[in-house]
Design a protein around this nucleic acid. Sequence first.
DNA 1: CAGTCGTGAGAGCAGTGCTCTCGTTCTGGA
DNA 2: TCCAGAACGAGAGCACTGCTCTCACGACTG
Lengths: 215, 215
Amino acid sequence: MLAEIKAVARRHLATDGANLSLRAVARDMGMVSSALYRYYASRDELLTALIVDAYNALGDAVEGADAAVTDRGDVRGRWLACCHAVRDWALAEPAEYALIFGSPVPGYAAPTETVLAARRTPLALIRVAMDASAAGGRPRIGDVPAAVAPDLATVRDALGVELPDDVLLAGSYAWIHLFGAVSFELFGQLNNTITARREYFEHQMTAVGEQFLGV
Amino acid sequence: MLAEIKAVARRHLATDGANLSLRAVARDMGMVSSALYRYYASRDELLTALIVDAYNALGDAVEGADAAVTDRGDVRGRWLACCHAVRDWALAEPAEYALIFGSPVPGYAAPTETVLAARRTPLALIRVAMDASAAGGRPRIGDVPAAVAPDLATVRDALGVELPDDVLLAGSYAWIHLFGAVSFELFGQLNNTITARREYFEHQMTAVGEQFLGV
DNA sequence: CAGTCGTGAGAGCAGTGCTCTCGTTCTGGA
DNA sequence: TCCAGAACGAGAGCACTGCTCTCACGACTG
């Protein structure tokens, strides 16, 4: 039942965007809106469930794309595969992408249950960065600022990974650029300018991989 | 009158986020909601006015920050000044930033009147990239993909600037990374990880400037 | 057979964007 | 000075929203 509600809600999300209407979902299920409150205490709770699902779907896509690269030593290929996985998923499910990476809904605070799912994608990228580093690739960033070093230690602990400061820092930069590139395209900032979007994206992420991952 | 409505709307935007209520704005002005329709035909029209203002405010901030650098040959300093101008403005007016760079409102198509104002900030950055290129800085990106070259020609014509393909392309990458970094921070993706945000941002944009602008 | 529990329907509240009508007020020209 | 027309704001109303509350129905259990 929970799954059916989510499925219908996802369909509405895809067509109507972020302003999801509980009543419309209920109508589609041949029910009355109040009946939905048996299953989700509020609209926010439904949105949270959709957000967790979205994070996991993206995580699945990225992890799967990375794992599908048979030559594990081809770090550049793995990085690009992850990038395309993010972009392809975002293009396929733009509303769900906007839900997790778009402007936050005012008054909505992400519950802690989302953070675990949210970490999967950056974690997958960090693993690629680690392998790149282990293979001798060095990120081309300057010295790690002293003020940032403690933050990096916190992140390293939270992620439970073991890697140098500069690799971690540069990996976060790569993740940010990837997120920026996909958002830029998806949110319409590329309209009327770039048409060869896949080539544009791939070339861009290649350059990013070279600098921030050293691949 | 139009200005007063916008001012009140901006105040509401800052507190309540993107879901701007015409009725609340009217209430604040001691009027009834229908009276607002004398001045703006719809909520979307008001939002469009706010969006244009936001683009121009950001453009003012960035152009001003660039112009404030007295040593015009200090291209790296100008680049960082522009970056900080974008971030500072975004942190000061998060709702307006989200309005123009966040997930697009479903069913809202940006009118053509917005594109002119929207171009000011990337144009200011491109000017910095041009000066960097003229001073001998070369972006570290690979060969420009053939499929993207025609798009770059279009952009060059639209912007009315004269600069090599790789400089223009790398400049767009720098702009995207800047947008991504600011959005990432503003949309809460940095929460519970990075606390030294200004240092993190400056180091990051320094690395981006080195690679994509050659400064 | 009685009682409990899950389920859905319905009414209702406060809020939204938007349209329409109606009375008032201000202003420009004869 | 007068008056038509424009500008303006109020109010009612429509269809919609999230959410709460009460009530009735059916199934399962002791």
